[in-house]
Design a protein around this nucleic acid. Structure first.
Lengths: 300, 300
DNA sequence: ATATTCCGGTCAAACCTTGGACGAGGCTGT
DNA sequence: ACAGCCTCGTCCAAGGTTTGACCGGAATAT
């Protein structure tokens, strides 16, 4: 393949040096020696890198006349990365679930939605997922056991949170080239909140989630994995239904995944079927903390 | 199944190249060789991809005459490897803001909010900012000049967009160790939309924005820059008010910034006071494109 | 009739080239 | 302190090419 070359205009955009200055630097200091063709200067990639370094050096106060004759290595040393220490500590405001729960108990959907939106604006998605969505669902579950909320109310709040998290999910575009994970819930496992939270955490960790929703047959997931080539297939097992059957499906899936694609499972159901799952090569996460660490390893 | 083909009009929409230019490119450089049927040219999907790449290359400063003979792979290399497998093709679907404008004209805040939220869910933040928020504000401004909307309506939609973009901003947490920029509007410049968009673009580029809002005195900004040590202080100058005075404040600020912190300014007001600003060492951006490239250089 | 496409010709704006000049800021010697 | 010199980004002029857009006329389909 022919080496890439750039006309002066493109170099100006890439380096942030104006066209005039570029020519002046070349004329006066021989900063680079681009080759020419009938259309004018053609810079090489090496030229562009050198110019970028020079620009940075100048930005830091060095005179162009002094740094112009330096070699690339010297320039690189000159503009070496400076990590900057001072970070503003974000005051972590305690979040109360009580207000939300009260809204649910009072069937006050409006208030619930308002509160959730307010929190969504104030909190980072990760915080929202871990400190609001999950505790709220847990609280609602307990309230249901106590007979304080009905099954209808539970569905209501689930739907609400689902749509909120779903919206958050779409709002964050992963960086290009980020590692991919495929996130879903397997056939027989209808609770998708855990999967949603996993998707949200993925985006926060610089991993691109492909969220497939709840109740996918293993075959579908395998087919999807073959096409998308994710680094991992992430499944959530809440463990409310028939754990054995779900675990069986997961094991079947894990064995059929292409090489290079791991199978990660979290949730109470996963912990209940630890033996069967790990025999099939599944990695089990006991909490979202471990999951986030695994994500960080992927993104690194 | 017959392979998909597109008439010239559709290709123009898809690639963003006008019909005339499309024909000129073909005539002069043989950029693609679409087949013909009785209606005219029929472009293949490959043609469309090639043309899109060419357009991007031209946008980045390459001369069409020079890049025309290059192969698809070379073009892709030239344009940067943003080409992950096209799982989410993200066709640059032109978003219409007519509905939004109609909602504003009809004082239909509910509908405006609904529409904006819908778009916020569907579109990536970058797209939302550049293709919805900015054009909408421009359209509202024009409608105001024509007397079709009142100043109150303008404030309404401004507030709405502001809160939406503000929410988006908080939703994205930058990766730890990312380079920082400080974003604000200087004393005397009340329009903060440009600054908000800049903040949004920063997060997309892997740069952590510290957003300070509108109307900061230079002294405050310098003090903040001293503590935070950002790589750049980014200011938006819409240029509605007294441009000279604002430019003076910006120049004052630029001279007082600590070494290693650049001063970047964008907006119509910046272009109007180009001379005074660049004398003070301010870097001026004519469009968000240039700003994004500068961000990319920071993050690199 | 109206709309779309075709083609070739034409034109103005943008671009690249070289070389010189201007001016703001910094350094130095008196 | 002040004049003089140097540095360096920007601007200009002049001469050339490139390129996007527009025009007019013809063909064809709705």
């Amino acid at each position: 393949m022919r080496p890439l070359t750039f006309p002066i205009r493109a170099v100006a955009k890439l380096t942030g040096i104006t066209v005039d200055t570029l020519r002046a630097w070349e004329r006066r200091y021989g900063v680079v020696e681009p080759s020419r063709d009938e259309r004018g200067r053609t810079y090489s990639e090496a030229d562009v890198e050198r110019l970028t370094l020079l620009r940075r050096a100048v930005e830091r106060g060095h005179a162009i006349g002094r740094v112009a004759p330096l070699g690339v290595d010297e320039l690189r040393a000159l503009v070496g990365r400076a990590a900057s220490p001072p970070v503003i500590p974000a005051p972590s405001s305690p979040v109360t679930i009580d207000g939300l729960l009260a809204a649910v108990e009072g069937f006050d959907l409006d208030r619930l939605r308002r509160e959730l939106n307010r929190l969504a604006v104030v909190l980072a998605p990760r915080q929202l997922a871990l400190e609001v969505a999950l505790p709220l669902m847990r609280a609602v579950g307990e309230a249901w056991h106590l007979g304080k909320v009905s099954i209808g109310q539970e569905h209501l709040v689930t739907a609400e949170i689902r749509s909120l998290v779903g919206a958050l999910l779409r709002l964050r575009e992963p960086p290009p080239g980020a590692p991919r994970v495929l996130i879903a819930t397997i056939e027989g496992e209808p609770h998708e909140l855990g999967a949603l939270v996993a998707a949200l955490l993925s985006t926060g960790a610089g991993v691109a989630p492909f969220y497939f929703g709840a109740g996918l047959p293993p075959r579908e997931l395998v087919a999807a994995a073959r096409r998308l080539r994710p680094r991992a297939v992430v499944l959530s097992m809440a463990g409310a239904g028939s754990v054995e059957q779900v675990a069986g499906s997961v094991a079947e899936l894990a064995r059929a995944l292409p090489a290079g694609t791991a199978c990660w499972v979290g949730g109470a159901g996963a912990q209940a079927s630890r033996a069967a799952l790990s025999a099939a090569g599944v990695e089990i996460f006991d909490d979202f903390d471990g999951f986030e660490q695994a994500l960080a390893r992927l993104a690194a």
